[in-house]
Design a binder for these strands. Structure first.
Lengths: 271, 271
DNA sequence: GCATTGTGGTGCGTGATACGCAACTGGAGA
DNA sequence: TCTCCAGTTGCGTATCACGCACCACAATGC
């Protein structure tokens, strides 16, 4: 066949196409059979059978009787199972909850997803003011403490990708200069934690530390965040110590036996 | 047409199998190629190619180099797009936020997902104590105000399914008697709202009202919830009015022009 | 240490199957 | 009413996904 479209997915053709349908729907929100067919480069009937199969599994949902298609609740069911099964979340939740109770602030767990931070779980603190819930959100890497931690430990090259375009400015304290960001990331690796004060939102401060997997690579970031007036500059180092300790404990639960670089010996998890 | 009514997945076979893989992983958490092949009733190589295709789209993730498979972050990406695109969430968020500000309590939007309530979105209230975030959670129908609303307006037969087994008890005020639950659901249809006081968790009170779609059926439930001492019995009717008004506004945004069909039980064909 | 058993992973030929075609249906404008 | 364009569906055929056989590697047993 002549115009072979760059076989991005590889593997089983029809499955590949079906998953592409999901991605297209994620991007465009709502598409008709003909539009999908055009995007995939297949006949309308083929596209129809793909969405019909997806619909049988509740992964897409049709508007009205002969309407267009959009993503369905089956996706949400899968997502619930995904976060519940992810090691980081499973191991991180009890530790994170304790940390939230200790510092009295909201605790988040985030992972690196492409060029953004993906927030997986959130544990509410005890204090009055609570941040908006971030679970499932994806936020730029340069404006949050979690993002800085993840970017600081990301595979080489990611930094260049992120800083290739312009860095979005959220407040007047957002770091938008690539050189300054690089310096800060160096400091993050050095100290073992990152901070973000009024950088994503005025009045919001956060501290984050890396969580290591069994292979020693950073798999997630753990943060505590709250209003800047409660997380004042002089309190940050102390909070950072608590966050780092919690992050190390999660790491050890994930099978990380690496060196205790930050002066904290992780408790060993049997099994 | 017609001979194959039973084909569970129907449609494209390989896609059907791939989606079954996702469901199996959701249920079991972690499976190897051979286990998947056994579950699907196909050859190992076939199962392998399916997961490989899924992996190319980040929907599954392999543990280690030759390890087992589990659901991947691609699912979370899709889920983010799903909730963002769902009509109920899109139309409900502004209204829900305003409601949260008005009553000062946490507002949730939930839909009926099989025999559970699926919480789609949450808008934080202004008050001190904030409930834990429920977005993405799935909770039993008989113990929350949202669940009661959804169950009260669910297709006939759902009630029997839910009450077929034993109803889980969460607190000593949880309704675990099917007959009493049925009475309460009748009242919910009558009044147009549901309440749950200390039924899921001691100290937690909620009020919920139905959201109607363009076709007049209940598509979601809107609730306000907070600590019982703030949502005392004498305040509940007033809060319920606010919640119902907000629910009606969302309904009208969804194209619902009818009047609330409170007390309508017409769809019943009991035999 | 070597065989054994099991796993994930891979070329290859072939027949089931998923595809494109074309005709159908039903709603929306003109 | 006609036309147009969308989502569907029956059908024959060539494609492509399947099972087979086999490989590489790890973890067992002896």
């Amino acid at each position: 066949m002549g115009n072979e479209v760059e076989r991005e997915g590889g593997g089983v053709q029809s499955v590949d196409r079906a998953l592409s349908v999901l991605k297209l729907l994620a991007r465009h929100g709502e598409l008709g059979v003909s539009e999908l067919a055009a995007e995939l480069g297949v006949h309308r009937s083929t596209a129809f059978r793909l969405v019909a199969t997806l619909e049988n599994h509740d992964l897409v949902h049709q508007n009205g009787d002969r309407g267009r298609y959009r993503l369905g609740v089956g996706v949400l069911r899968l997502a619930g199972a995904t976060t519940a099964r992810l090691d980081v979340v499973q191991e991180g939740r009890p530790v994170g909850s304790r940390l939230a109770a200790e510092v009295g602030e909201t605790v988040n767990i985030a992972i690196l997803d492409r060029d953004e931070a993906l927030y997986l779980d959130q544990m509410a603190g005890t204090s009055a003011l609570q941040a908006h819930n971030w679970t499932g959100r994806r936020i730029a890497l340069h404006a949050t403490s979690n993002g800085k931690v993840l970017l600081a430990h990301a595979p080489e090259g990611r930094f260049e990708e992120v800083t290739a375009g312009r860095l979005a400015r959220y407040t007047d304290r957002t770091v938008t200069d690539a050189a300054r960001l690089r310096e800060e990331l160096d400091a993050v690796r050095e100290r073992g934690y990152a901070t973000a004060v009024d950088e994503l939102e005025v009045g919001l401060t956060a501290v984050a530390a890396p969580v290591f997997g069994a292979d020693g690579r950073v798999v997630a970031s753990l943060s505590a965040s709250g209003p800047t007036f409660r997380l004042a500059a002089e309190r940050l180092p102390a909070v950072a110590d608590q966050v780092m300790a919690a992050a190390v404990e999660i790491s050890s639960r994930l099978g990380w036996y690496g060196r205790a670089r930050f002066g904290q010996q992780g408790k060993r998890d049997k099994s």
